[in-house]
Design a protein around this nucleic acid. Structure first.
Length: 572
DNA sequence: GCCGTTTTCGGCCCGACTGTTTTCAGTCG
């Protein structure tokens, strides 16, 4: 069983939790958490690195000790130190930390004083009123725990970016309409455009005495007020999303925006750079001693530590600070750069509109072309195309192209990759097309080895252009299929194949770190929407956001090219 | 446990809010 980076990250995170509950040095705990994040986000498999004898201590935050532990995990699948800690403290205590209001100290107290080791123990103790008798605990804490359980079933967890966008847009509109409010902006992972959002961090600048917090708690979506202060309040929305609102002074706006946009890891790194220059950076500004020297804009904050502005999508402390220092930040692709959509369905299979309707809507989007990529015959339930019907449709596209002006339909297909890696349509039919999107829709559960072989075999076909939704995942619904992304990208590079970044908000796949990996290898990306309706075209904004998180520039994205430019990139 | 443009030892980001407190620890982001 191959050890994935996420396995190493899970073990380190579990160990960090147990060490923290056990009262270990907080910096030691942080070291494990940092390493978990670095390994989890690392684009290359640490198991492969160990196999190749590469030096793991070159990973930031991984020293000699942790390198040894990673090796142990890779070789044995587990970590003896974790087993030891689990003998000391039951691992069920980790779950208690997830209860709002309970941190390591309280969890330890519950364990030591009341023998609480599991969520069930906790629930029982709370209902029996035993918690409030503990020193440092009171009735409020006990009530909070009980409420947590009644809420558990309806808890939101992380929500997809699209859902967060709906909620945020409405709230921002409401807050902006309040008298005295000058600025409202959503920061946090929402501004960094992460594919899923944990909560919404909203920044407000307003006139003195403005009633923004009073108005917030009476907003129609608010079901519970978690805290309410003059500068900071937290509320829970009906949808289960937590919203944190902060009121900041105008002169601190840039510092606050930077601070609350995060990520936490990025902020810590920036503040550390400040410390080295004798500066203190917080949400109110950049300070030398007591004197504020910057903070009105984010640019000022970055300039104070000698950096150029860094786009929010890059702020994950995954190399952007080093790149900024070298003047090597990417010039990220924008929505305006996109010239067309290379993954579009029509009524001919499972789409809602005709080719003509999809073409006219695309023209309104300002596009120069769309690729009509209906399904192939394997997907019989949506009446997928066979070779003969495809030939007829190609004729129709040619007729439409003569008739339409300002938009071009590209003859294409979303052809199924069969289990043995062959394509669902004969070469003679694929040959007539401008390009193909090749996708897996069946047998998602093959072994990593077999799935990788299947995809590479498919790429061997001379008419393979773009690999559609390359990991097959559906957010909240389906895990990605097992595939060796490094080998896949290598194969794509050798064969001149393109990978898709599917902008559908349920997919957003290729994921950000794999986009960056593709870019580093020189593999081109198609950012497309998988539109099944005219109204799906604007999903492009999610695709472009994800592309930006993956460091992609205009030149990395093939559908920023004109049709004549695109034709040259396609391998045929 | 990591790390080094003051350091191989001694630092490690920082502030708001809450609840349980008589001055602050714990949690959270």
């Amino acid at each position: 069983m191959p050890v994935h980076n996420s396995d190493v990250a899970d073990i380190f995170n579990e160990l960090a939790d147990l060490l923290e509950i056990g009262g270990a040095n907080q910096f030691r705990v942080r070291a494990y958490r940092t390493a978990a994040r670095v390994v989890g986000d690392h684009p290359h498999s640490v198991a492969m690195m160990v196999e190749r004898g590469e030096n793991l201590t070159e990973l930031p935050g991984v020293g000699k000790d942790l390198a040894g532990k990673i090796e142990e995990i890779v070789r044995t699948g587990s970590l003896s130190q974790l087993a030891e800690e689990e003998r000391r403290l039951p691992s069920g205590l980790r779950q208690l930390m997830k209860v709002a209001g309970l941190g390591p100290k309280r969890v330890y107290a519950l364990h030591k004083e009341l023998g609480i080791n599991t969520i069930e123990d906790l629930k029982k103790a709370a209902l029996e009123g035993r918690i409030s008798s503990l020193r440092g605990f009171g009735r409020k804490t006990e009530q909070m725990v009980i409420e947590e359980f009644s809420r558990r079933t309806g808890g939101a967890g992380r929500v997809r970016l699209q859902v967060a966008e709906e909620v945020a847009t409405a709230l921002v509109g409401y807050l902006r309409a309040i008298e005295g409010v000058r600025r409202v902006e959503v920061a946090g992972s929402y501004r960094r455009k992460k594919e899923t959002i944990g909560d919404l961090d909203v920044l407000v600048v307003c006139a003195p005495g403005c009633s923004v917090m009073d108005r917030l708690v009476t907003y129609v979506d608010v079901t519970k007020v978690l805290s309410k202060g003059i500068t900071k309040s937290s509320v829970l929305f009906r949808s289960g999303i937590q919203v944190d609102v902060r009121v900041v002074p105008e002169e601190s706006y840039g510092a606050a925006l930077h601070y609350f946009t995060g990520s936490k890891a990025h902020n810590i790194a920036i503040r550390l750079m400040g410390v080295k220059k004798g500066l203190k950076i917080n949400e109110y500004g950049v300070f030398r001693g007591r004197r504020s020297i910057a903070g009105r804009t984010e640019e000022e904050v970055y300039a104070s530590v000698g950096l150029p502005y860094i786009e929010p999508e890059l702020r994950e402390n995954l190399g952007e600070i080093e790149a900024a220092l070298k003047g090597a930040l990417p010039d990220l692709v924008t929505l305006d750069d996109i010239r067309g959509d290379l993954h579009v369905h029509t009524k001919e299979t499972d789409g809602r509109h005709t080719m003509r309707e999809m073409a006219e809507a695309a023209k309104e989007m300002g596009y120069a072309y769309i690729a009509v990529t209906d399904h192939s015959k394997r997907l019989a339930m949506v009446h997928g195309f066979d070779e003969r019907r495809l030939a007829k449709r190609n004729d129709e596209i040619e007729r439409l192209n003569e008739e339409l002006s300002g938009i071009r339909l590209l003859k294409s297909i979303e052809v199924d990759i069969l289990e043995d890696g062959s394509l669902d349509l004969a070469d003679w039919a694929l040959k007539e097309l401008d390009l193909t999107v090749c996708s897996i829709h069946s047998r998602l559960n093959l072994s990593r080895e077999k799935q990788t072989e299947r995809l590479i075999r498919a790429m061997d076909n001379p008419y393979f252009s773009i690999l559609g939704h390359p990991s097959g995942r559906l957010l909240d619904a389906r895990s990605p299929y097992e595939v060796d992304m490094e080998r896949l990208l290598d194969a794509a590079k050798q064969r001149g194949c393109i990978l898709e970044l599917n902008g559908h908000p349920d997919r957003l796949d290729l994921v950000d770190i794999n986009c960056k990996m593709a870019k580093d290898l020189g593999v081109k990306i198609s950012v497309s929407t998988d539109a099944h309706s005219k109204s799906d075209y604007p999903f492009m904004r999610f695709g472009v956001a994800q592309a930006r998180r993956g460091w992609l520039e205009k030149a990395d994205v093939v559908n920023t090219l004109s049709w004549s430019g695109l034709k040259k990139v396609l391998k045929r």
